[in-house]
Nucleic acid binder design. Structure first.
Lengths: 341, 341
DNA sequence: CTTAGCACTCAACAAGCAAGAGTGCTAACA
DNA sequence: TGTTAGCACTCTTGCTTGTTGAGTGCTAAG
């Protein structure tokens, strides 16, 4: 039941032709454009076999053939070639990601940005899960008579701050004391540890002023920690779908946009994907709404540990070779710039 | 050329009917549904007059009448009634905006959120311009052997921080010295002053270690200030347009989404609008792409000064009365929660 | 096994037609 | 003078029908 050399060649021709033209491809076109050395009739016979084996489908009797998910899978696994990015593309990418400031979130946003521009698809990126991230220190700084800034710094370099409105004025010394006490207590613990264990309740101190301060700050400390756990999702190139023939009817465009806009749902899908480059084609996606889409993701690393993801979503007919190369190139770049020397 | 009482009543009926039905309204429907006390024929005569005066249009000979921009303008200025929000809506809004933590950006995002949910339109919000905002202090904190966190606090309570990767290790004392020196220099100055004037170049110090540190930090200080000036734009309910008949063809939906997605352009439009509740209808909008849309914005205040904006964009056929009330209610709430007691 | 030839199928487009909604006008009425 | 009924007219919408072109499947010959 293995495919012959010729069948493979025909299949490859059909897939690449359909990927660029979006039109069902017929036997005549095939034999002309790709000089296969055989006549259309022969190709028809072969195509008929391929259809029987589930690699091709037939929108209707008198239309050409269209690759099935299975054909794309074969194409991705065995037929497609690596694509080397052009110099100008490489330059564009590095320029977008450059900068000696490590601004994690912004850099990732830019990565999603450039990805959608180069691929003309809808791109996305998520920031790493932070739950294994350890706290480095906590700082509470004065801002106003009754306003303070709570600042939490994690070992990864992630910083989060919240402006807090206190009910009463405070003493600056209490602030720095409390900062030190909290840092002493929580340093080196992971964020999720702090959240799940009961250490927060047990935070007690004998110094009266500090204890009152702690009372109003602790709940917000927890909230801020919580928000540090949040995974950010960046989407870009949403309107690109309008130039893709697959979405040239309202119903489909709507479905697509609504699917991607269910951000939490979409985040979950991304979080649960494996590391490395992962391609899921059409019905291989577990989500019903994604059955007509292909998803390509790759992972980037921060200091070789924390893992975030980046990728594109689009119709099953997409330039798998090119897109994969771009995504890999970008995630490599990201990992490198997020790794301290 | 003043409109008679009856013409006004007819116009009001047409506008409200069309706003809910989205169908051209004919004379027969009008006299039946809104018992005007006159026959369809009479109404036809009146409608004919109204059309002559530019309040109504005619998609084609045998269709009902459709209100023009001018009719909506009249409706908004004179005919529409205030709408009181339901208790449950009020509750939903306050719940969304509640919280004793002042997290400016997040609260504003939530506001845009609830606005689109209640109105079923596309909503947006922008954060205030920060250029009149004065610096309160600057803090440079240690994070790693060669990493520091630069933190800038403005008088409004706005906080911004950047993680900086230094080329060489530093002394903690130099950090706190530099923080103090910078604070001393820039406190009380507005952000745009600092950026435009030359004070940055002139930042000099005799202490050797500090000066080297300052050299690598100053450029990033400027960048961070720059990013503080950035106005954030939050959009929500984009996919709502798919349930609006006006956008039930691909071309229009595409145009709409692309217009809103040109974020910088859209930001500019918003920034340049007047304070208070502003309604612009169809061709009243200066932007070409917005000629088919109406825009309603209102302003909220932070501590009675800094001004941000919130609003919706949708087809000219929208529930002006309801939407205006919701927007006003939300901005009032925002202003109140952003004002320290 | 490959190929030429031919009948067959189906989508897409255009043209024609009927039904329905709504108007504009005219003439009669209060 | 304002209001109304009646009627012809217009235009959209949906339906049907016919035509064209692309492409297939099958058969028989090379």
């Amino acid at each position: 039941m293995e495919l012959t050399e010729r069948k493979l060649r025909i299949l490859q021709a059909i897939v690449s032709d359909f990927i660029t033209s979006a039109e069902p491809v017929g036997s005549r076109t095939l034999s002309k454009k790709y000089d296969m050395g055989v006549s259309p009739a022969t190709i028809r016979n072969e195509m008929s076999d391929l259809e029987e084996q589930g690699y091709l489908t037939h929108p209707h009797t008198s239309a050409g053939r269209v690759p099935s998910d299975r054909a794309y899978r074969l194409y991705v696994d065995r037929l497609m070639d690596r694509v080397e990015l052009s110099e100008s593309e490489k330059r564009r990418i590095s320029e977008h990601l450059a900068g000696n400031i490590i601004e994690l979130d912004r850099t990732i946003e830019h990565a999603a940005n450039i990805l959608s521009e180069i691929t003309n698809l809808t791109s996305f990126a998520i920031t790493p899960k932070q739950d294994e991230n350890k706290l480095k220190y906590i700082n509470i700084l004065p801002a106003d008579e009754s306003t303070v800034v709570l600042m939490i710094v994690a070992e990864s370099g992630k910083v989060k701050n919240t402006v807090l409105q206190l009910k009463a004025p405070y003493h600056e010394e209490s602030l720095s004391l409390l900062s030190k006490a909290m840092t002493y207590n929580y340093r080196g613990k992971t964020i999720s540890d702090i959240m799940t264990m009961d250490i927060i309740r047990n935070f007690e101190t004998d110094i009266e002023a500090m204890s009152r301060l702690a009372e109003s700050i602790m709940p917000n400390f927890v909230k801020t920690l919580e928000s540090m756990l949040d995974i950010n999702l960046y989407l870009d190139g949403l309107t690109n779908i309008f130039s893709i023939p697959e979405y040239n009817n309202l119903e489909k465009a709507k479905t697509f946009l609504e699917m991607v806009n269910r951000r939490n749902n979409f985040k979950d899908v991304l979080v649960n994907r494996d590391e490395g480059v992962v391609i899921t084609i059409g019905a291989e996606n577990s989500e019903d709404l994604m059955r007509d889409c292909s998803l390509i993701t790759a992972t980037y690393h921060i200091n070789g540990k924390l893992v975030g993801k980046l990728g594109v979503i689009g119709p099953t007919r997409m330039k798998y070779d090119k897109v994969t190369s771009v995504i890999e190139y970008i995630t490599d770049n990201l990992s490198r710039s997020f790794t301290l020397p």
